[in-house]
C-alpha cells in the first residue's frame, strides 16, 4: 500500500522549471526559440546545467537578456555570438568546430581509423590457408582405407 502511494506520488512529480512566469514572452514562436537557445547555453555558476533549468541569478539574467534580444530581432546566431564574446566558448554545450577543437571533434574518428587500419593490416598479413586445398586422398591413404574397410567387412 505504502509502495503504491509512493509510486503514485512519484508519478505526480513534474520536473521543476527554472523559467519563471514573468520571463515568458507573449509570442510563442519567440518563446520557443528562447527556450531552445537557453537549453544550449551553460550556466557559468552551476557549470553542468543549462541556463534554462538553472536557478542561479546570472542564469535568470541571461534568460531575460536572450528574450530581450530576440524581441529586438536578433537571430539565434547573433545571440550565441553575443554570449561567446562575453563568456567564451565555454558557455556553449556544443563546442564550435575550429582549429583549437579539431582534436576534440576529430580525435575519436582518428583513433577509430588507426584501430581499423591496424586490424586490416594484421588480418591481411595472417598466413592464409591454401585456397585450393587438395581434398583427394593420396594413393597410400586409399590403400589404407581399403584395408580398413576390408577388416570391417570381415567382422
Amino acid at each position: 500500500m505504502i509502495r503504491a502511494c509512493l509510486f503514485a506520488l512519484a508519478l505526480l512529480a513534474s520536473p521543476a522549471f527554472a523559467v519563471e512566469p514573468d520571463e515568458v514572452l507573449s509570442d510563442p514562436a519567440l518563446e520557443e526559440r528562447a527556450r531552445a537557445i537557453s537549453a544550449n547555453v551553460r550556466c557559468v555558476v552551476c557549470q553542468n546545467e543549462p541556463i534554462d533549468s538553472s536557478n542561479a541569478g546570472v542564469a535568470r539574467d541571461l534568460r531575460v537578456l536572450i528574450r530581450e534580444r530576440l524581441v529586438t530581432g536578433d537571430t539565434d546566431q547573433e545571440i550565441y555570438d553575443f554570449l561567446v564574446l562575453r563568456y567564451g566558448d565555454f558557455v556553449l554545450f556544443k563546442p564550435p568546430f575550429k582549429p583549437s577543437t579539431y582534436a576534440l571533434w576529430l580525435g575519436p574518428f582518428a583513433i577509430l581509423f588507426i584501430g581499423g587500419l591496424a586490424v586490416a593490416i594484421s588480418l591481411s598479413r595472417r598466413p592464409r590457408r591454401p585456397a585450393t586445398k587438395d581434398t583427394h586422398l593420396s594413393a597410400e591413404e586409399e590403400t589404407e582405407l581399403a584395408k580398413l574397410m576390408e577388416e570391417d567387412k570381415s567382422l
Binding site: 557559468v44 555558476v45 546570472v58 539574467d61 537578456l65 562575453r86 563568456y87 567564451g88
Partner: peptide, 12 residues
C-alpha cells in the same frame, strides 16, 4: 540590473 556584470563575463 547586473548588465555590466554580464558584459564583464562574471559568474558571481
Amino acid at each position: 540590473a547586473g548588465r555590466a556584470g554580464i558584459d564583464l563575463g562574471i559568474s558571481g
